[in-house]
């Protein structure tokens, strides 16, 4: 994986530093950047130097601002984490009741509504939904600001107001995926023999649902929620741009625009690592909470 991220900069047509600096720059700036980024070394040595530095948290310096990539990422990470977690909350708030109700009343009105809503949510581009939310809630109703960011510590209410729309825009899409998942895994759990046995024994419905159905149905939800969180962390790129949310997605996009390849490399590496770590954690967590898997 690191080889792939490393080779990003070498797949660029032409000299990446010259591309980043544009037409007006001094030879000293050029030489200094070239030396600092290690591009004057042989390729294999470059890789090991880069990987060695990356392991210690040194991802190089930005071609544009001269700041270290690690510090740039560190500045942006909290905003992206906040947005991804808020979106996950929105997704679960939508998905859990909707998915459960539609599984408990299959082919009912609520089931049909849930199916339509989740199909729509999966098909709608999140950036278009963002624009529509801005149009309605910022433009027509004037209830919420159309974008921007203030730190929680400075203005908690302003922070929350600016978080709502981007979190809903990203959360609806994930919520739709999770709704379908909750519905199908609930249906599967409802059809199990032990559920029928419990009902036959005369166990109260509420107890059957919480004890026999939900416990089994919600186990796979851990996996899908984890995967969705990983997607949310990286999938908020476009939404961050629409709402001027100063997160990692915006940083990566800015790096693409400026041809600031070390920053792009750093962001891609971080996203891929986060993705892997979350997947690993989900696997571990899953075997912890489901004793059947741990025993296998």
């Amino acid at each position: 994986m690191s080889v792939l991220v490393f080779s990003l900069i070498h797949l660029v047509r032409g000299d990446p530093i010259r591309l980043a600096l544009g037409t007006r720059f001094s030879q000293e700036t050029y030489d200094a950047l070239r030396e600092r980024s290690g591009l004057d070394l042989p390729l294999v040595q470059q890789y090991f130097t880069w990987a060695g530095r990356a392991l210690t948290g040194d991802l190089g310096v930005s071609f544009r601002s001269g700041d270290t990539v690690t510090s740039l990422i560190g500045e942006r990470l909290p905003a992206t984490l906040t947005l991804a977690l808020a979106a996950l909350v929105v997704a679960l708030v939508i998905a859990l009741p909707l998915g459960m109700l539609s599984a408990l009343h299959p082919r009912s009105l609520i089931d049909r509504v849930a199916t339509v809503v989740s199909q729509f949510g999966i098909s709608v581009p999140d950036f278009w939904l963002s624009i529509m939310l801005i149009l309605v809630f910022a433009g027509l109703l004037g209830w919420l600001p159309s974008g921007g960011y203030v730190p929680l510590t400075e203005d908690p209410l302003g922070w929350l107001q600016r978080l709502v729309l981007p979190a809903v825009a990203t959360g609806v899409v994930s919520g739709s995926v999770i709704t379908r998942f909750v519905r199908s895994s609930m249906l599967e759990a409802l059809g199990q023999d032990h559920v029928r046995t419990a009902q036959a024994k005369g166990v109260p419905t509420r107890q059957v649902l919480t004890w026999h159905v939900l416990r089994n149905a919600l186990l796979p939800l851990v996996t899908v929620t984890g995967v969705q969180l990983a997607y949310l962390l990286s999938g908020v790129v476009v939404v961050e741009i629409v709402f001027s949310w100063p997160g990692l997605g915006q940083l990566a996009y800015q790096a693409v625009r400026d041809r600031d390849f070390p920053v792009l490399q750093g962001a891609v590496l971080l996203f891929a690592l986060v993705f892997l770590v979350i997947n690993l954690l989900v696997d571990l967590l899953y075997s912890r909470i489901d004793p059947r898997i741990a025993r296998r």
Partner: peptide
């Protein structure tokens, strides 16, 4: 597969 789809495409 480990790379997020949108970001990989952007890169």
């Amino acid at each position: 597969f480990a790379f997020p789809a949108v970001l990989l495409a952007i890169a």
